[in-house]
C-alpha cells in the first residue's frame, strides 16, 4: 500500500480544508449573529440615552428586542431610524425614544401588571413584557391585532395577552393596572381607564400627529384625586433662542 502516494498535493488539501472549515464556521456564525445588534446598540446610545432616558430595564429591553420584526418588510431598513415608521392603516410604530420615554414614565416594575391601548405593531407591548409580569394589550383594527399577535407569539412572549377590541373600555376583567400606556392619541381620556388604574397608578397618553408626537400626558391617580401633567415637549427642552 502506498499510502503517501494517495495524496499528491497535501498543501492543497490543507488549504481547501481550512477554506471549507472557515466557510462553514463563518456561515454558522452569521446565522447566529444578529445583524441588527449594532443598530440597536446605536439606537439606545444615541437616540435614547443621549436624550435623558436612563431606566435600565427599558434600555436593556430595547437592546434585546428585534424592532425590525415589528415593521413591514419593505421598511426594515428604517426600523432603527430616529423616527416613527408607517405600519399601514394610518398607524405608525413610534419613534424609539418615545417608546422608551413612555415606558420609563409609568415607572414599570417586575411584579406589575400593565395595560396598553393600541397594540399597533406590538413593539411597545414587547418592551413592557421584558420588564413587567404581565402585559394586556388591546387593538381595535383587526388586521393590526392579527399581525402583532403573530409577531409577539413568534418571539415567545407568553406574558402578553392581545385582544381585538375597542380600547375605550379597557380590560375590566384584569383590572386594576399599575400602569396604562395609551399609544393612540385621543381627544379625551376614557373614564373606564381612569377607573381601572390602581391607586397610585400612572397612565401615559400621547398628544399629536402620528409623525410628530409633540407631547405626552401623564395621568396620576391618588385616591379620589386625579391629576395630569403635560410632559411637553417630550423630546426637547422649551425652546427659545439661545437655550
Amino acid at each position: 500500500m502506498k499510502l503517501h502516494s494517495q495524496n499528491k498535493y497535501p498543501l492543497r488539501t490543507i488549504f481547501y480544508s481550512i477554506l471549507i472549515i472557515s466557510l462553514v464556521v463563518s456561515g454558522i456564525y452569521s446565522l447566529t449573529e444578529d445583524p441588527f445588534k449594532d443598530k440597536r446598540e446605536r439606537m439606545v446610545k444615541f437616540q435614547i440615552e443621549s436624550r435623558g432616558v436612563f431606566h435600565k430595564p427599558t434600555l436593556n429591553a430595547m437592546r434585546t428586542i428585534p424592532r425590525h420584526l415589528f415593521v413591514p418588510k419593505n421598511r426594515i431598513d428604517e426600523a432603527y431610524d430616529d423616527g416613527p415608521v408607517p405600519i399601514g392603516y394610518g398607524q405608525t410604530i413610534s419613534q424609539p425614544f418615545i417608546v422608551a420615554y413612555m415606558t420609563e414614565v409609568i415607572h414599570p416594575q417586575k411584579e406589575q401588571k400593565v395595560l396598553e391601548i393600541g397594540t399597533g405593531s406590538g413593539y411597545q407591548a414587547a418592551v413592557l413584557a421584558e420588564i413587567v409580569d404581565s402585559v394586556f394589550t388591546i387593538e381595535i383594527i383587526t388586521e393590526l391585532y392579527k399581525s402583532s399577535s403573530e409577531v409577539l407569539k413568534k418571539l415567545g412572549y407568553k406574558n402578553v395577552l392581545v385582544r381585538n377590541a375597542d380600547g375605550y373600555y379597557g380590560w375590566e376583567q384584569h383590572a386594576p393596572f399599575d400602569g396604562i400606556v395609551v399609544t393612540a392619541a385621543a381627544e379625551y381620556i376614557p373614564p373606564p381607564l381612569i377607573k381601572q388604574l390602581k391607586d397610585g397608578g400612572r397612565m401615559v397618553i400621547p398628544i399629536g400627529s402620528p409623525f410628530f408626537v409633540q407631547s405626552l400626558m401623564l395621568v396620576e391617580k391618588n385616591g379620589e384625586k386625579i391629576t395630569t401633567e403635560n410632559l411637553m415637549p417630550v423630546r426637547f427642552v422649551p425652546f427659545r433662542r439661545g437655550n
Partner: peptide, 15 residues
C-alpha cells in the same frame, strides 16, 4: 359604533 366626542373632557366625567 366607536366614535366618541368629548374634547378635553373633565376627568370627573364617568359616563
Amino acid at each position: 359604533p366607536h366614535f366618541r366626542y368629548a374634547p378635553g373632557i373633565s376627568l370627573t366625567y364617568d359616563k
